[in-house]
Write a protein that binds this DNA or RNA. Structure first.
Lengths: 226, 226
DNA sequence: CGGCTGATTGAATCAGATCAACTGCTGTGG
DNA sequence: CCACAGCAGTTGATCTGATTCAATCAGCCG
């Protein structure tokens, strides 16, 4: 495995162009953390950010009385401590290895120097983050629609926007689509049928044709119901 | 209104330290867009990013047949076109003013040059974005818990982590809390009662005491039910 | 032709929303 | 100082959308 692949093993950096991934790799190094090893402690100045390559890491707060409150367990591919590093704060919690682990470490100082010399690295990371932020925002919007017909209608409209046609291919088996919409195949099946009967769409296997965009839109906003 | 306030009027930049907000302001300028004015067109090279100061802007795709598919309507405080600008792509859709609007514009070139000279600006923006990303991730996690007791248990555990004590103040009236959890006051009331009866918590007005952290945790993960 | 998987349909059940009534607190005006 | 309006919160009865359980169907591959 090359160094570049190492950096790419962290989801956060996946999507960076080769040149930038390589540049980052040059300042990153890997560390082994045996089970139980403390990686950093709450209150220390944030010296750098970490990614989990292998094993698991827990993020916890120690209460004054010494009780441990686990905030998060992280697995391979996950980044941590990036917020305090970017913000120039101290670590807000303590991190320790749960299993024997291998970590990627990027020192704050070197990272900052590299940003100064390579604005495209900064742009690349901003691009990744803002793309992901948009995706998340969309997901939140979708999840906060309570009824299945609303979520399905919203999803179909989204597909319609992407595929730029009224004839949509469901690129996912219906069972998977159901899971994506936070429901089960049975319900999806019934809702598709009702939508078809009400004239909003036509369904032929995994091909769905939008017949009434405005109607679907009204459904998605809960203005109408099936 | 000073220039700095202008930049801060966009949510995205809110949270930047004064020095960086001022620096950004220096390269930003404002534009007026009368109703109907096209701001940029799909396929053009992304020259810069925009924020809505006043009015509304629509983002739409024009299908080959000339039909317009509106993807999004944006209001004051919202940023747009930042993804193609950061990524160095062309605009993926067309933007036009819906009302008479005032926009903030930041040219890509100047923005990139500024990043090169000021790594702390880059760090600051990365900090904002990654903080927001974490918040969103948490929200998605919470929303994807389907049952109210799960969501409430998760929320109580979160508060417990923040307040670092088993005795929690609900900093929100119960009606508001219900809305935050995606339910209604009646249901919240019943669930709190059930949790108290089952011995997980004790409730005294807006003061909740966690009696069984592990039990709550099991509830939050759906391992147990009320 | 079996036998598997994905999709559909029907019946029973359940969680939560809705509707409506009631409690209890707080603040204000007579 | 009391009375009563007003609002947050609680409780009960009912209704509805969605899941669960079970059976069936369609297509596909060996």
């Amino acid at each position: 495995m090359t160094q570049t692949d190492l950096v790419r093993a962290i989801d956060f950096f996946n999507g960076l162009p080769d040149a930038q991934a390589a540049a980052l790799s040059a300042i990153a190094h890997t560390e082994r953390a045996p089970r139980g090893k403390e990686i950093f402690r709450e209150g220390e100045e944030a010296a750098g950010l970490y990614g989990v390559l292998e094993g698991r890491v827990k993020i916890a707060k120690l209460s004054p009385t010494g009780k441990e409150q686990i905030l998060h367990i992280l697995g391979p591919g996950e980044l941590f401590a990036e917020v305090p590093v970017f913000a120039g704060k101290s670590y807000p919690a303590t991190a320790a290895a749960v299993d024997d682990s291998r970590l990627l470490f990027i020192p704050r100082r070197a990272f900052r120097d590299m940003l100064a010399g390579d604005p495209d690295l900064a742009m690349g990371m901003l691009a990744i983050l803002s793309t992901r932020l948009r995706e998340f925002a969309r997901k939140i919007e979708a999840l906060s629609l309570k009824e299945v017909p609303e979520r399905l209608a919203a999803h179909l409209l989204l597909l319609r926007g992407e595929q730029d046609s009224d004839r949509l291919r469901l690129d996912l088996p219906k069972g998977q689509l159901a899971a994506l919409l936070g429901t089960i195949p049975e319900t999806l099946s019934r809702v598709l049928k009702k939508m078809a009967e009400a004239g909003y769409i036509r369904v032929e296997g995994s091909q769905v044709t939008v017949a009434d965009t405005d109607g679907l839109s009204a459904l998605a906003q809960g203005l109408e119901r099936l």
